[in-house]
Design a protein around this nucleic acid. Sequence first.
DNA 1: CTGTTAGCGCGTTCAA
DNA 2: TTGAACGCGCTAACAG
Lengths: 341, 341
Amino acid sequence: MGTKRVTIQDIARKTGYSKTAVSFAFNCPSRISEAAVEKILSAAKELDYIPDPMARNFSLGKHMALGFLLPQKAGTSLGNPYIHSVIKGIAAECQSKGYMLTLIPPLHSSVQEAVKNATVDGIITIGIEIDRSLRGILRRRGMPIVAIDGSEDDEAISSVSIDDEGAAEMQMLKVLERGHRKIAVITLPGDAYSSSSAKPGSTLEKRKAGYAKALKQYSMTLSDVTLLSSDTTIMAGRKAAESILSSFTPTCFVSMSDAVAMGIQEVLSERKMDDVSVIGFDGIEEEEYRTQYLTTIVQSGSEKGRVSAQMLLAMIEDRQSPVMHRTVEYSFQEGRTLGWI
Amino acid sequence: MGTKRVTIQDIARKTGYSKTAVSFAFNCPSRISEAAVEKILSAAKELDYIPDPMARNFSLGKHMALGFLLPQKAGTSLGNPYIHSVIKGIAAECQSKGYMLTLIPPLHSSVQEAVKNATVDGIITIGIEIDRSLRGILRRRGMPIVAIDGSEDDEAISSVSIDDEGAAEMQMLKVLERGHRKIAVITLPGDAYSSSSAKPGSTLEKRKAGYAKALKQYSMTLSDVTLLSSDTTIMAGRKAAESILSSFTPTCFVSMSDAVAMGIQEVLSERKMDDVSVIGFDGIEEEEYRTQYLTTIVQSGSEKGRVSAQMLLAMIEDRQSPVMHRTVEYSFQEGRTLGWI
DNA sequence: CTGTTAGCGCGTTCAA
DNA sequence: TTGAACGCGCTAACAG
């Protein structure tokens, strides 16, 4: 029952050696005699000694954990398959480097508070704008950060993204190539996963630029398509679809996220509108559910996760932090939801 | 640049008060004069002071984090939609209680090592057997644990599960009711998500008992169906399907997991064997991908997660740990993969 | 080379 | 309102 925790002191007392010797026996055996090491280790085993990881980390000034900042409330964030696959990538990298992965939900709805209290060595964000106040907190805590889908123009914060303009252009071209002209575009909200106004250089603006480029090749402009913004959940996608369909029937929905595309697809399916096409954006990983169903632009979430974790771990270990902006590949994935006119 | 972290000492020096006073100003303002509180807080703001959460936690002997032990390598665990929904439930509960959720991958392939080093206040496991050595580590660390899908007969470890026997009986009855008699059952591996031999009282055995009960009502026994065990991944499900189909063609596959059922469904779909039925087990949450597709027995993963997190938090806060075994509901979910004969 | 002493890190809290 | 001790492991500096 209430047996007190065994500490390094207990081992020291039991063996007659000092705390230092015990510590060395574990971390730097060559520093003391073999005989001493042996005695100490066997005593430790006998007493069932486990070094307290918190005390150890405190001493070393490390946590052995990366933090992933959930951009929305926990359920919503984790319900987003794109975010889910990002987490998979981060987790895989963490595992191989012996780190834990700590999911950080907003604390009392405040991301700032959450970051102030997070016991991690570094933070990965996704799709949120990192404002002055958050930057201040990170700086004061000396906490490195990598922003997935962050701005490539940011001079202070490293990012991992795709070529959003190119990817969006590809997406729209696929739609146009197949003859669609009555197009409804469901965009991301102003700030991808949180609420904020659209900024130049944002993912949203880059994608729009890509769409414009594609449309131009068909002598069209953004004003020839219907634009509607939506949160990135299946439910929000359903609402967006219903909203669009109440005023007109496009031949194709172009969505900036798969979650939304799923919601749209559900509505179309329920209304037996199988002739209306849908193309998504994000893609999901092999092991996920229902791989090949949705036609979409795949940006490997898990690769973004992996790459960002690698960058973050390098920043943590190297101490120096050259700000880098890396991109990962994207591709078109044929499914069953984008037809020809 | 290299401005050293601001500590409680700095505030004390700057204001002329003691560390103690500063600490009280933050945590227990009524202990000191209002004037002091005000001076201290304003000085703290001026110096941009953020209390170091690790030092704070170390002092308090808390972590403010729950740990979720990944039963397999990170990618595989997180790729399993059932596990994913469990994590969602845990995360939601953590968020509401101001805790973080730390995913703990096996360290150097060792769960024991991972648990030794985990900086969390308690641990939730899923589908793994908690052996003597692991119990020893948990005890020595004074770390409470809740085992999802753990044994209800365990006198030392609290668990959250469903009535596996009843659920399996329901699953098989649905199949039999619809006229299926040539049945292939794909079971869980011996230990749900790790490798170990089947034990009486295990999920596997309970489910088998449920199947037997259902079959008996149709004057059949387990030896009238084909049994094959498989890991709980989509890929393993594909392999299982191919293996079964190489020797005979059942009218229905009964799977103990949705991941496996998905793999089976993919193979059937590729081979245009649309007349062969599949029923899964686990179910997925609303916000997930492709909700209504697979016919399955739904055990709410997120509810298991929520309940287990609640139990764990109670154990952490109450200090006392009455071992409890709770069950959550299950239900049949009609999809499009279970036909009539 | 082996081992120890002493102090650190930082916020909390007991005794005064 | 405060000085000092505490939690626990790490490590610089030093002595034998």
